[in-house]
Write a protein that binds this DNA or RNA. Structure first.
Lengths: 108, 108
DNA sequence: ATGGAATATTCCTGTCAAGGCATATTTGGA
DNA sequence: TCCAAATATGCCTTGACAGGAATATTCCAT
């Protein structure tokens, strides 16, 4: 999970992921569309690959990169544990303040 | 979106967010539970706050931090645009390979 | 076999961010 | 008013990472 967020933290990499959302692309195509150098793209793709966000498929000279749906599902699952935060009115702020108050008047 | 991922990319910050999932906490409590120094926690909370991931509520001496559900919803929405990747069998790899083949035999 | 295209890797450099420490700031209590 | 607790901020150092240029690698076509 940490690795995934780190990979997406880089603006160009995030952009690349969003670009691949519409289908697989080769390194050169990505470089061209984003106006980046080829080595730059290769290195970013390496990071994305190691984070499990993309898959490679060598075709002759080129390498076709595509998103790996599993990684996005991982994020989805992680988000799931927070879902009650906005589905229910799960705030607990008031309850917590009372706990603080209790500690005020009766510190351990 | 970029800011959010950057904030979550830091292991300690990710840990803090997961800690706040169970309810609001003060700076000191977070520092204690994660075994971090107080300034360390304050600085990380600042980043999380600027990314819109947490809210603060001053109570006397202390500051109670809580998750901001809206930010998590933002991630959810972002993920939404990728959902068809795993809901439908949206691969396009085969189709793309044919496009590549076409370019092979007929380059521009 | 040779050359050229597509991609990966290496080395180098500059930048930025995290951690540690000290210190400022705010607040309540004696 | 003065002190102590809780938190934030500033300064400094160090490590990691992105970008650029050059080079290595792989593959196809001739």
């Amino acid at each position: 999970m940490n690795t995934i967020f780190s990979a997406l933290a880089e603006p160009h990499r995030l952009h690349m992921v969003e670009l691949l959302r519409d289908g697989p692309l080769t390194v050169g195509e990505i470089a061209q569309r984003l106006g980046l150098s080829q080595p730059q793209v290769s290195k970013h793709l390496r990071v994305l690959s190691e984070a499990g966000l993309v898959d490679v498929q060598p075709i002759a000279n080129r390498r076709v990169y595509k998103l790996r749906p599993q990684s996005l599902q991982d994020i989805e699952n992680w988000l799931g544990s927070f879902r009650r935060l906005w589905e229910t009115q799960f705030d607990r702020m008031e309850a917590y303040l009372q706990v603080l108050q209790a500690k005020e008047s009766k510190p351990d």
